[in-house]
Amino acid sequence: MLDLLIDNQAVLIEGVLTTLGVSFLAIALGAPLGLILATASRQNNRLVRRSARVYVSFWRGTPILVQLLLIFYLLPAIGINLPPTLAAVVALACNTAAFQSEIYRAGLAAVPEGEVEAAQMLGLSRRQILAKIEAPQAIRIMLPALVGETLALVRNSSLISVIAVTDLTRRAQQIASSTFQPLDSYMIALILYVAIALVLSAIGMLLERRLKQQEAH
């Protein structure tokens, strides 16, 4: 297995970078979209609220594999032709936006209503309430869930090879089929995914600790 790892280190690194690049772009693009959705689902306007719910149900309720194929193979039929990597980022971003919006919604809902009312009594503006009262508490509540979502997205990104993006999983498959050593190849991929997950969780823990310290001050 060590020979396989050394012989193929360059392409494996490329695979890891593709996996990380696509995942982070998707998370970053999905975040603002998720926030918009979370806000929309708290609106009084029924149409706005419904539309947000339909979007979230669709992207949470259908398999990512199907979503990828949809974006890559069906969009060209209406004249939108995205290159493979961009199609992967767009599909995963649309998907994670739905999951992130639920995290944001739950986070905002967890802030006690009494605090918001108290702030209103004190004459704080809507924006001030969001920035000073709701957001700081919500972020602390949401952080573990957001780290979890990032980890889930990295795992889900292993499907993007179906639309011709050569990620870590595809690299392992390529190595498996040219060397006829599938077990070792997939074991290497597994170890690399575990390494990515460990680093991401460590970053998440660090952030959580930081926020706790801030709270203590």
Binding site: Q174, S177, S178
Partner: peptide, 11 residues
């Protein structure tokens, strides 16, 4: 993934 027709070597 169809050696020896087409497969990946060193990327």
């Amino acid at each position: 993934r169809f050696p020896p027709f087409e497969f990946v070597e060193n990327g």
